[in-house]
């Protein structure tokens, strides 16, 4: 839920409430990660490292559900819908443009919710490995999740899975680019 209401508030206040939206969203990714079979068998340090380098990318996949690429609008969980132009004024213009493009590409694959969830698990364990102590364990976990994702898609649509699966894996570098280009965007928090 995002309590952003443009009408009565200053740009700074909108920016702060938009920033607040990230806190619960990040916590949900942490809980999601702990539910990935095998993730909690990694060392705690490696769990933290993967989350720090992968959470932004997982959020990008999650936020796709809020975006309507055809109408270029964003609908927050509280039901408020904003055209891209309005949110561009918040200073996230380039990130939003990139998110709309990514959302369009991912949406074209018409994935089911369970496939998207498994894809997000793959995204997380495929994140940048610098700082990981046991890369072999992470790679093994990644292979298992990729295999499960391929099987899940194949089971649902055997004839198209040969086309869908490679396209889906091609979204991973897109997400890494999004992360490298935009995770340094600034958020603002009021401290009373």
């Amino acid at each position: 839920p995002c309590p952003v209401s443009v009408a009565s508030r200053s740009g700074q206040q909108i920016w702060e409430s938009f920033s607040q939206c990230f806190t619960p969203a990040v916590r949900e990714v942490v809980e999601f990660a702990k539910g990935i079979p095998g993730f909690q068998e990694l060392s705690q340090q490696d769990q933290v490292m993967l989350l720090k380098s992968g959470t932004f990318q997982v959020l990008m996949v999650r936020f796709c559900a809020l975006l309507n690429p055809e109408e270029r609008t964003v609908t927050f969980l509280n039901g408020q819908t904003y055209p891209q132009s309005t949110l561009r004024g918040l200073g996230m213009g380039t990130l939003l443009d990139a998110m709309f493009d990514f959302s369009e590409n991912l949406g074209a694959l018409r994935l089911e919710p369970d496939e998207i969830a498994l894809f997000m698990a793959v995204v997380l364990v495929s994140a940048d490995r610098s700082g990981i102590s046991d890369t072999a364990a992470v790679e093994q976990l990644q292979e298992g999740l990729i295999h499960a994702l391929r099987s899940l898609i194949h089971r649902r649509c055997p004839e198209q899975s040969a086309a869908i699966f490679p396209k889906l894996l091609l979204r991973l570098p897109d997400l890494r680019t999004l992360n490298n280009l935009h995770s340094d965007k600034l958020l603002a928090f009021r401290i009373d």
């Binding site: 990230f22 995770s183 958020l187």
Partner: peptide, 25 residues
């Protein structure tokens, strides 16, 4: 006076993750 803390998205994400793991130790 109200003060504002500005941090990058990446730092904000790292901060919440560190907080979460510290809390659950």
């Amino acid at each position: 006076p109200k003060t504002h803390r500005v941090m990058t998205l990446a730092d904000h994400i790292s901060h919440i993750i560190t907080q979460d793991f510290a809390r659950n130790q």
